[in-house]
Design a protein around this nucleic acid. Structure first.
Length: 570
RNA sequence: CGGGGCGUAGCGCAGGUUGGUAGCGCAUCGGUCUUGGGAACCGAGGGUCGGAGGUUCAAAUCCUCUCGCCCCGACCA
């Protein structure tokens, strides 16, 4: 590609509404352009990156036996009504009517559509298993789209759906996807982690998230520094460690704490460590109000409580509920005298003489002890893991906390949709059974954005070779010098012929402009062709990632460049 | 959905209190000159001041309504 004839629009200044690096750099490099909140055009350079991600995904999906299809983005409401989701999905589902006043939605995900296809075509166990996927634009009307491609409303996603005759088969399908996903993110040249995710009611380890590690990630990943256990912070198991505590029990003391509500405020006010403060959170699990006690320096984990209690909906209790069970205002709840069951995190077990709310405005109680002062229904793992916690897998390592960006998610769906939509097959005995489904997603745009979050510097993007819009840019530095032009053109043509994804920056710009654009756009390899090196019969190969610059003879240039590219792929 | 902020040239911003010719930098176009890290000089074009209504002789500026966008939070996966 000759850049003089290409569509390349870099911005010197960062548009003011970009917050994260990937968003800023994609805008500046002229890869995307915003059309509306969370809705972007992919400009040529950006599209090339998107296509590279897509093609890697295709390759390994196909290899794993999945078959590509393409479903409509506009979906008739009937299908969504059949699965029931039309009534529960809420505002995130973009709904509209056609000229005949019929309801439609823009698909945010395609379980209904694929299930409708498969139930029509597949009748026998002999036709199963099958795994169909598509790469397509989805729309979710997010409350707050942000961070460019990272969290758009319109976004490109690869979604795959597997159908099996039984659980064993579903597990095989699931594991194939798990392997394919690992290959995909590896092939993208990204540092990632596969983590256990909360699989909710389904249970088992049938849900994994794929996280690209980056400091700017929104998700927290817990991993062991000794073995390879890693998990979403929601899911990471906290080991219940017995602890010796020989402190003598002191007697309960009331203390006025005017206006001090949060743990930090109370701890500071009483001049005690946050560990000594225990917060009592009032929750509503389905229709039951319960209290959960958590050590002040820990964070409550709602899914854990929900799973422990076997509920289906969990939320913080509202003001009324709190006043009802505690006879006191919000912010001063404590376990003593509560009119509901009290559960406590394991960490409370070994704690003595701690501070709790007094169930009265501006009142806290000191030196409280369970058993003696109130009853705890049960202890359990109800908190988020923290760095330093012991690994439940090897029992030796300590937890580390890393930030990540969720780029892929796989999970077993079971028969939720096949049952609701009567997607059944006849088994060997001629009996009709619902198919067991699995669902596997990858955010294509998000993967590209995550690659930038993970690989950039002050000057711009540092693409992994596998995702770069072009692998190599050839830069003639003196556009008025015949020799320079000829040599650059020659190297460019030779690279093209060898199948290298190369472009030549033949624009009539000064060297500085081209260098800055090249750094910003992030071509992994830049070949400088200039008078200086040419005097020695050389050109320079500049490696974006390391900043390394090598002089090579013109004749050796192509081989060396290909060599460097191969090296970068490792 | 709650709280806060912003809409003025393609981008980044000033002007607004105190109403009176719409401005700056970058980008763009023409020219001279230049060519190894976003050159310099000369000249030029470009605006329904987000929109509607109101107050006024006069509104970017004051008032009302509206739309869009951004941030924090809640929510969602």
């Amino acid at each position: 590609m000759k850049l003089s004839q290409y569509y390349i629009q870099t911005l010197r200044e960062t548009p003011s509404d970009a917050e994260v690096v990937s968003h800023k750099l994609m805008l500046r490099a002229g890869m995307i352009k915003k059309a509306a909140a969370g809705i972007y055009s992919y400009l040529p350079l950006g599209l090339r990156v998107i296509r590279k991600v897509e093609n890697i995904v295709r390759k390994y999906m196909n290899e794993a036996g999945a078959i590509e299809t393409l479903m409509p983005s506009v979906v008739p409401a009937e299908l969504w009504k059949e699965s029931g989701r039309w009534f529960v999905y809420g505002k995130e589902l973009l709904r509209f009517k056609d000229r005949h006043d019929r309801d439609f939605c823009f698909g945010p995900t395609h379980e209904e559509v694929i299930t409708d296809i498969v139930r029509n075509d597949i009748k026998s166990y002999k036709q199963l298993p099958v795994n169909l996927y598509q790469i397509q634009t989805k729309f979710r009307d997010e409350v707050r789209p942000r961070f460019g491609l990272m969290r758009g409303r319109e976004f490109i996603m690869k979604d795959a759906y597997s159908f099996d005759i039984d659980n064993e088969g579903a597990e095989v399908s699931y594991n194939k996807m798990k392997e394919a996903y690992c290959k995909i993110f590896e092939a993208c040249g990204l540092k990632y982690r596969m983590v256990d995710a909360d699989s909710g009611a389904i249970g088992g380890s049938f849900s994994h998230e794929f996280m690209v590690l980056a400091d700017t990630g929104e998700d927290f990943v817990i991993s062991c520094d000794n073995c390879n256990y890693s998990a979403n912070i929601e899911k990471a198991v906290v080991v219940d460690k017995p602890e010796e505590n020989t402190e003598a029990l002191a007697s309960v003391e009331e203390r006025l704490t005017p206006g001090q509500k949060t743990v930090e405020e109370v701890a500071k006010f009483l001049n005690l460590p946050t560990k000594k403060i225990v917060k009592t959170m009032i929750l509503k699990v389905d229709e039951n109000v319960v209290a959960v006690m958590i050590r002040g320096d820990h964070e409550l984990n709602l899914p854990k409580v929900k799973n422990y209690l076997g509920g289906s909906v969990i939320e913080f209790a509202d003001k009324n509920d709190i006043e009802m069970v505690s006879d006191g205002p919000m912010g001063y709840s404590g376990p003593i005298g509560l009119k509901c069951k009290v559960y406590a995190d394991n960490a409370i077990k070994h704690l003595k003489n701690y501070v709790v709310g007094g169930n009265k405005k501006d009142l806290h109680l000191l030196n409280v002890n369970h058993e003696r002062d109130f009853k705890i229904e049960a202890f359990g793992d109800f908190r988020n893991a923290t760095p330093g916690d012991t690994c439940p897998e090897c029992n030796k390592g300590k937890f580390q906390l890393t930030k990540g960006i969720e780029v892929g998610h796989i999970f077993k769906l079971g028969t939720k949709y096949s049952e609701a939509m009567n997607c059944v097959f006849l088994d060997k005995d001629g009996k009709a059974k619902p198919m067991i489904m699995g669902c596997y997603g990858i955010g294509i745009g998000r993967t590209a954005a995550a690659a930038i979050e993970q690989n950039h510097d002050e000057k711009g993007i540092i693409w992994p070779v596998q995702l770069a819009p072009f692998e190599v840019v050839v830069v003639p530095l003196n556009t008025n010098d015949e020799d320079v032009i000829k040599t650059a053109d020659n190297i460019y043509t030779r690279l093209l012929n060898k199948g290298v994804d190369v472009c030549i920056d033949d624009r009539n710009e000064r060297a500085g402009v081209k260098f800055n654009d090249a750094d910003l756009i992030g071509y992994p390899v830049r070949v400088n062709v200039g008078k200086k090196a040419l005097a020695d019969g050389c050109v320079e190969i500049h490696i974006r990632k390391s900043g390394e610059q090598i002089n090579v003879l013109i004749d050796d240039a192509c081989d060396k460049i290909i060599n460097v590219i191969e090296g970068l792929k490792q």
